[in-house]
Amino acid sequence: MDSNSLDTMAEKGTSLWEDAWIKLRKNRLALMGLGLLIFLCLVSLLTPWIAPYGYEEQDLLMGATPPSAEHWLGTDVFGRDMLTRIMWGGRVSLMVGFIATAVALAIGVIYGAVAGYVGGRVDAVMMRLVDILYALPFMIFIILLMVVFGRNLLLLFFAIGAVEWLTMARIVRGQVMSLRKQEFVEAAHSLGLSQWIIIRRHIIPNTLGPVIVYTTLTIPSVMLLEAFLSFLGLGIQPPQSSWGLLINYGVETMEEYPWLLIFPGIALSLTLFALNFLGDGLRDALDPRTSKD
């Protein structure tokens, strides 16, 4: 019996992650979404260096001009380059999307995992609290917060994150609850493994799929909420800018200069498309039911 290394003699298996990636690669819309998203993130990161004009650069004499060779997306009433403004606005919009989602993710996953794993009375109390928070008119509270404490970016992250964690907590809890009853977790218990090992090796890897999917779908809804608030004049504050704010300005002058509304609108919608298609694609790819056939 030779004891040569396993890797030389073993056939390589395909893990569920690799499986999902193979499936995702066949989903053209999701791949396009992923590509677009990477492109947008790169552009946002590099904006200070690649933006065609300065953020503050204006040309009052020129005023609003339609798209042209110098200004691909035209200029606004102050003669500022729209492409530059949209790039800078995208930075803020994407940042809000990612950071607020990260806040929601952190709170939601920990809260949901604890409730689901501990179960029993603790779970009942924790979930009751989530139910109560669900019943609160959060949209109104966020508006109120922004009115009362002024339009503060940091506050916005936390306010939005605080709303979105509820659903994340419910998803993670449900997932953990059902995993806890799975036979392989019971088998781990009967092997005498410690709680921490069971959580780390058997529970967490199996909850990642739904969490990734929901995270991908939370980012667009957060971005939408930010744009919504900015549109009402309650979100991002000038001189900072976001797509919601640009749309707000665009609406004021849309009769004369429709491109000021249309281009930021396209930027926002395309990003939302990309994220939603990617999220749907991930859901299909990670769904265990589709991996069985």
């Binding site: 919504f228 919601g244 665009g250 009769e255 509304l261 609108g265 919608s269 498309f273």
Partner: peptide, 16 residues
């Protein structure tokens, strides 16, 4: 499209 076209964008576009 409906999901990615929020009301504050759809509204002005419809008006336009």
């Amino acid at each position: 499209i409906g999901i990615c076209m929020p009301s504050f964008l759809l509204g002005p576009l419809l008006v336009l």
